[in-house]
Amino acid sequence: MKTKESSYNYGLNIFFNPKEVPEPSAVFALPEVIGAVHMTPLPEGDGVLVHIPKADYEDTVRIRLNGSCRIVIAVEAGTTVTLLEEGRAGSLSIDLDVAAGADVRYIALRSGGVEFARRRAAVATDAKLAWTTAHIGAKFAYGRTSTRLTGRGSSVRERAMYLGADGDCFDLHSEVVHEADASVSDLLTRGALAGRSKAIVRGLVRIPEGTRACIGKQKEDTLLLGPDAEVDAVPMLEIGTDDVRCGHSASTSQLDDESLFYLMSRGLDRRAAGQAVVEGFFAPVLEDCGEAFRASLGLKIARIV
């Protein structure tokens, strides 16, 4: 199936000044991968090929980044595995190949820094992929996650979160192309912005001509915690066939007075009530994030709300 370049055009100028964005770290270094896997350097020498054979993985396979790099990950058919990406890379390229019947969870956790990350996946017949990308603050974070559902009955679930305080800037894309029949996508992005912080959030679900019985769901919610925060939300659909069930939604709002009032009537002070509301807002996108990450998110929320 041919994948055409998307025909959309944003029609808006991107609001940040590229000159203000600091250079990503030029440090180039191979990552460490911890877990029972085979690793071979890529012929170009700029990254690694990680091969995940069929086995029982009780522990999470951890990818610890040490600098800019390219990682190609191949997960064998029928394998169930959780991959956790941590550390820091100035620029990062991930290619994830999910073979038939595999069930992969991929979690990328970040706090602070400047990063350009592109993550791509192809999901084969009856395979499942669950992406989670989470940012606690970022001087500048560009993140693009593209998923091709290439096999019949394949599915992708994506959860993305970002929390921004003064000076933070996010440019986040999620993209799903349904190339095979009966494929399912479910995208949810939740973000909260305080102080002078900005985010562009774009999502695209494309169902090309000729595919049948696909289901696509896409949602982008933003909480603005201060008058200086800014968000551009663009959830997009490109549908070329009638045999679909597809919907998307986006919302931008402030802390909900009613929830605050309710919590305050139970004895919380305004600050604690606000923090509880923000934590609750993020709960649906944090299922796959570990305790440690949740704890540091809690601390950050306590600091900025």
Binding site: L224, E230, L237, S249, T252
Partner: peptide, 20 residues
């Protein structure tokens, strides 16, 4: 059928909702 809804919000005291 294509849907490209842009929203840009610069203040916090708002309620902006999009559905399709």
């Amino acid at each position: 059928s294509n849907t490209y809804p842009f929203s840009r919000v610069d203040t916090d005291d708002v309620n902006v909702v999009h559905e399709a």
